[in-house]
Amino acid sequence: MIAANAPDPTLRARALAYLQAALGPDTQLTRLEPLGGGACQEIWRVEVRLADGAERALVIRGDPAVALPGSLGRREEHEVINAAVAAGAPTPAARWLTEGLLRPGAWAYTMALLPGVTLGAKVTRDAALAGAREKAPTQLAEALTAIHTVTPDRVTLPLPVPKDPVAASLDALRESMERLPCARPAQAAGLAWLLKNRPPPGEITLVHGDFRTGNLLFEPEGLTGVLDWEFAHWGSPLEDLGWLCVRDWRFGALDRAVGGLCRRAPFVEAYTAASGRAVSAQELTFWEVYGNLRWAAGAILQGQRVLVGPERDLELLAIPWRAAEMEYEALRLIARQAQTPTSAP
């Protein structure tokens, strides 16, 4: 059955040929429809029937017409995902990289469509997922640990290796802030504080770059998948920890700082146990402040973007207003650290 909003017949024929090349000449394409997802992705939901009658649910992810600044193309993302899979990260493998399937010049790959829930409000509050939230500190820590075992001295990826990962992240933040339509003094104060309180460069690992509630797939048994790798980069592993604690990912569960799933202490403890990395409260605060500012600037820039389709206009309009929330949280964290006696140099 083909949905009412099915693509043009040319795409259907191309998709069928692509899938038959990958899965066998007798493969049938039983479903092909756009999947609502990130605004910066072109995603198709696919169902196939194999020669032996088995059904498979898949997702084809392709390069969008307009990519978000700083995001990877599918070709690079494909390599990053498979490096993470090889390192044991719970993420579906990216298969059958191809060019021109969805649009001339656009790369695409396919992955298994996993069951589960990503929606923030459900993940943080649905009673059916209470068991998953209980396991969250350990499972999030183990997933991040696996990702952070991928290092540039052991794995070659099509990503620039920074000399100083902290400086590179701060440069990226400054560049975002310079593109804002109006200066935001709270962000300026936040950046100045980050520059003043920066930790030493430290180690460089693969950083997922958008590891947060909304991009994590849960079933009642626990975390089943880490999705959306388009912001992956070489950087400081602790950047991923701070990003997960950004206030916007708590979806009303404000007391659970770690993505609305759990408190900081058990998560950091589990991460240290799994990875062997000690994480001080100061370092976590540094990367939390960084994450909140990155999203504050990003939220304003998202509203500035050329809108990709009429069905997303409304959401993009509402996003810039959230910037003040993350700015407030960044300043709250800074004021709190200033009051903590152990933060004295």
Binding site: A324, L331, A335
Partner: peptide, 19 residues
Amino acid sequence: PPDDETLLQGLRALLASEL
């Protein structure tokens, strides 16, 4: 200084009025 108490308080009040 970015951690100046007056600055932080003033900026948070500014954000509170926006919020």
